[in-house]
């Protein structure tokens, strides 16, 4: 067993796990953050996407010890209190989820995508960038709409009082 410590959603966490423990299992089992999902477990579906040091990665394809000392953000870390993150709000508004299983990974991928592309997002880019996220309800159309809307809103300067 190795003591693996990292910052998750701004909170310092630590747990004794085997070196072979995947980051997703560390998050779900060792520190009880079950918002990050395991879908395919073969790095294809993207349900397990989290941010490690500011970059989206598949937490089923990374060991927890690889992330030791890193700063990790999961779906639980996006909202501010009761206020949803703009991407979460857009998914709700545009019905960007059906069964909801892929949603945490979709949203973490979307937040990363918007950060990297800023105002440069168009529909073709969003669809291409979602290559590593699979929705088995096939609800891509509304997911794309939600991401484009969130990107536009996040670019808008705050309205003057």
């Amino acid at each position: 067993m190795t003591t693996v410590s990292m910052t998750v959603n701004g909170r310092q966490v630590s747990a004794d796990v085997e070196d072979r423990t995947l980051l997703v299992d560390y998050l779900r089992n060792a520190i009880s953050l079950t918002g990050t999902h395991v879908g395919c477990d073969t790095s294809q579906c993207g349900a397990c996407v989290v941010h490690v040091d500011g970059r989206a990665v598949k937490s089923c394809t990374m060991l927890a010890v690889q992330a030791a000392g890193s700063s990790v953000t999961t779906i639980e870390g996006l909202a501010t209190g009761d206020e949803l993150h703009p991407v979460q709000a857009a998914f709700r508004e545009h019905h960007g989820l059906q069964c909801g299983f892929c949603t945490p990974g979709m949203i973490m991928t979307a937040v990363d995508m918007i950060r990297r592309h800023g105002g440069q997002l168009d529909e073709a880019t969003v669809r291409h960038e979602l290559e590593g996220n699979i929705c088995r309800c096939t609800g891509y159309h509304n997911i794309v709409k939600a991401i484009l809307d969130a990107a536009a809103k996040m670019q808008m300067p705050a309205a003057a009082e």
């Binding site: 790095s43 993207g46 996407v49 970059r55 989206a56 990665v57 598949k58 394809t61 990374m62 991928t109 990363d112 995508m113 990297r116 960038e129 290559e131 590593g132 996220n133």
Partner: peptide
């Protein structure tokens, strides 16, 4: 190569 998350690693 792969997808955005794979390219990050």
């Amino acid at each position: 190569i792969g997808d955005p998350a794979v390219r990050h690693m």
